[in-house]
Write a protein that binds this DNA or RNA. Structure first.
Lengths: 171, 171
DNA sequence: GTCCCTATACTCGGATAGCAAGTGTCCGAGTATAGGCGG
DNA sequence: CCGCCTATACTCGGACACTTGCTATCCGAGTATAGGGAC
């Protein structure tokens, strides 16, 4: 049971995007540069976020990605399911309906007890992830990240936005 | 994030093994026959249960598998981790320590906020699975399984044990 | 008749192929801008 | 000098190889039994 590391990248990217204001956007290449990950692969995951309507994409030279709703309304569960798919990790193959003791399918009304227990656990997992938003992550950063990183990150973001603005600042 | 279906097989097998008494054992081939799954592959998973000290294996013609402790002391978490491995699904690759805003490693004391949230969710998942034992699963069966299946299963098990006993019943 | 020995058959255990999904990458379609041209 | 047009460069989006891990399988090591032989 291995979770794609794209989930980690996507949450980090959403967190960074939460610092944008107004209609600002960041292209996938810049997101990848900030996190030190392969740009094309991150772009692939960003497409999944767009499909899940977590992010919006803007084409063209001034385009890029931005959150499609406030960071406080994007839960970690939303992002995780967008990347991993919303199918449960445990899939009951109904092996109770096989073998020498099997009965006709219509005899099985409720779910298998094992599947029920596994799904209950998964529900607890989802509930916990749904309780944390990208906004929560972002607002917790000043308390746990090194101050120098916060400063450097803010400077990088400002510079990046300014550079992108400069090339289109004459409008 | 896909869980191996070996987990499902293993839990079903442990549930069946919980019906054994005294020093009775069931070979992997019989467990596979009862569940309608490939025998060699199930045997592979049974080995993982032995390694995790959930089951004991007995070699030789009268050998097979049995639970190494009472079914009430075998949790679904035990079985799941035995098959899937005890590594968490989410693995933080510390991408916060990469990119233009990265700081020296010693500046990062606590875990990343994202990793902490993901691990918290996983902890909730584990807690839920640790609350259910194989014994719970077995004792719930009469309430949810078709009576005909319970009867057929009991008959199959009795016959199987008798057949195995017959070949060694002359001792 | 009883005991011992050997051959047998059945079991687990680890090592070996096949396949699907995640990982990583690339190129094409579309768009806002920058510069040049005409009025 | 101002407005329009075209070429450009940059963006996203989907299609294409590669690697890892799950899926499935087989064969060898070990052991309790069954039968035969000796006493």
């Amino acid at each position: 049971m291995k979770m794609s590391n794209g989930v980690e990248w996507a949450i980090h990217s959403c967190t960074l995007l939460s610092y944008l204001v107004d209609g600002e956007t960041l292209p996938a290449a810049k997101l990848a540069e900030f996190h030190g990950v392969p740009a094309p692969y991150l772009a692939k995951h960003m497409q999944a976020l767009v499909r899940a309507e977590i992010c919006e994409s803007v084409p063209g030279p001034t385009g890029g990605f931005r959150l499609s709703r406030p960071a406080n309304e994007v839960t970690l569960l939303d992002v995780t399911l967008a990347i991993e798919g919303d199918e449960p990790a445990f899939r009951c193959s109904e092996i109770r309906q096989r073998g020498p003791a099997a009965q006709p399918a219509h005899c099985y009304t409720g779910p298998c007890g094992i599947a029920a227990a596994m799904w209950r656990a998964e529900e607890a997992w989802r509930r916990e992830l749904a309780a944390v938003t990208v906004g929560d992550i972002a607002s917790a950063i000043p308390g746990i990240a090194p101050p120098a990183q916060v400063e450097a990150g803010a400077a990088w973001l400002a510079d990046t936005l300014a550079t992108r603005g400069r090339s289109s600042g004459t409008l």
